[in-house]
């Protein structure tokens, strides 16, 4: 069972992830975050022209309007039966971390790469909305394949749902150039999808699993 967490904010709608999640996820947790930063900024900008009562009422109205917006996103999804909406007001990244732990998410899905999410110990899917036919699983060392069995199986399961071919690539091989150095792409691959296991330090405990379109990395 693949349990996905899709964080959404006003500016980051993650529309590609929303579409793709219907194919690859069994259960979708949509976390809509009203970023307090936006509300505080609104209050700062308006405080000199609106009184405190008006600001309080306005804050409530704005949060409610965003709730309605969040509900409409779920309504628009083709697989809305699989979706559970979590609506929160707070700091976006703090809430993503909190929910990924609370829901025991199997995959966090976004449309744009955010380095900080790699530290959340949950596989990260970065979706650019491209059609996917081939996938490549990149591991920095061939000897790690056995130790990363779960990850390989997980990648395989994802690819089955996407109906794409998967191949393994060892970036440490003599025949291969180093493809990634600390998440920086140094060579373009021909695959539509890259599944990258960052296995530095202690791979089993403290690693991130990044699934991304070829052009997704910074």
């Amino acid at each position: 069972m693949i349990r996905c967490l899709i964080p959404i904010t006003q500016e980051k709608r993650n529309e590609n992830s929303l579409k793709r999640s219907c194919i690859i996820c069994d259960r979708i947790h949509l976390l809509y975050v009203v970023d307090t930063e936006i509300l505080e900024r609104m209050e700062r900008e308006s405080a000199y022209v609106l009184n405190s009562d008006m600001l309080d009422a306005l804050r409530q109205t704005l949060v409610e309007s965003q709730r309605r917006e969040a509900e409409s996103i779920v309504e628009d999804m083709k697989c809305k039966d699989k979706v559970k909406l979590h609506f929160e007001v707070g700091d976006h990244l703090d809430l993503v971390e909190k929910y990924s732990l609370r829901l025991n998410a199997g995959l966090i899905m976004t449309d744009s790469f955010e380095r900080v999410m790699l530290g959340m110990k949950v596989p990260l899917w970065v979706d650019r909305g491209n059609r996917i036919e081939n996938a490549i699983f990149i591991i920095d060392n061939a000897t790690r394949v056995k130790r990363l069995e779960k990850s390989v199986k997980f990648a395989d399961a994802l690819c089955k749902r996407l109906e794409c071919d998967i191949s393994l690539k060892f970036s440490g091989d003599i025949s291969q150039k180093q493809i990634f150095t600390e998440y920086k792409k140094t060579e373009k691959t021909s695959s539509d999808l890259i599944i990258y296991q960052n296995s530095k330090n202690k791979p089993e405990k403290n690693c991130s699993f990044l699934v991304t379109g070829c052009d997704a990395l910074p």
Binding site: Q10, E11, V34, I38, L39, R41, M42, E45, S46, V49, L50, L58, L62, S65, Q66, E69, A70
Partner: peptide
């Protein structure tokens, strides 16, 4: 822009449109 006009900032905060 959002800065300079509280009206823009207030309506933006509804979540109905992006910058």
């Amino acid at each position: 822009l959002l800065v300079g006009n509280p009206g823009n900032m207030i309506t933006y905060s509804t979540g109905y449109y992006r910058q």
